[in-house]
Amino acid sequence: MKKRTFVIILSTAMLASMATGAFAATKLQQIKAYLNPEIKVQVDGTFKTMRDGKGNELASINYNGLNYFPIAAIAGALDTAVDYNKETKVISLGEKVDGVSIAKGFSDMYFTKDSKLTTYKGHDYKEGWFNNGPGNREASFMLKPSKKYQTLYLKVATIDGDISNFTVKDADKDVILKQVATITPEEGLATIEVDIGGADSLYIFGDVKDKTAVFVPLTASYYK
């Protein structure tokens, strides 16, 4: 019996030592915090239940007078994608892109953050270009890659009609870099890949008819 007790104690000590060693190998610091179930979260006026990855309800953690929730829970409440890279130890919020999002610095009268307009097929892209102007028209906007990138990956969707002669032009050289004859609603979110090496400004346009809208999710379109 004494031998068995000794083995259990030794095993426990080894586990504690291993745990201590694991923490010592990181920059984690031990703190004293409290759970605060009284804290509630509202998003755009609507109460949201904070949950973990398994769907369990979470309480806020209070530390030094501040309340905290896991980033994944906050992202879920905001309907925002979240990802963690174990190798780089980087947490990413929002759309995952392989390059630089065109949302940065984008300016146009049809720029919007209205979730009713930035949501396409059930997914809210948060920032978008949504051209729903009246009448038959040329739907157009400008981009400024400033000669920093080689390729543009542009996501485009049309709603209630086609867009024809969709064109990406080097605005300074007046040279067409890419032209797509027709993009239809049935294609869903189409990806237009364009070689933009050396381009400072881009003029992007296409022809649409009355009651047709064009959507470009800025957070999912990017330079590379």
Rank of each mutant, 00 (worst) to 15 (best):
F166D: 08
E193I: 12
D170A: 11
G99D: 13
Y84P: 13
G105E: 08
K147H: 06
I71T: 15
F69W: 12
K121R: 09
A103C: 03
M109I: 12
N64C: 09
S115P: 07
M109L: 13
R137W: 08
V175G: 05
D79I: 03
E138H: 11
G99T: 05
G99E: 08
L154M: 15
K116L: 15
L117E: 10
N132R: 04
K121G: 08
P70T: 13
I102K: 02
K173T: 10
K126I: 03
L177T: 08
T158Q: 04
E127D: 09
G161Q: 08
N85R: 04
T184Q: 08
A139Q: 01
I61V: 15
F106W: 08
K89R: 14
A77W: 03
T167F: 05
R137M: 10
S140L: 11
T88R: 12
M142H: 06
D162N: 15
Y120P: 07
N136C: 06
G105A: 11
S107Y: 11
K144G: 08
E95Y: 04
T112W: 01
D98F: 02
D83A: 14
G128Q: 05
N85L: 06
D83P: 05
S60F: 12
T182G: 01
D162P: 12
M142F: 12
G133P: 10
P134Y: 09
G65A: 15
M109Q: 14
T158L: 02
G122H: 03
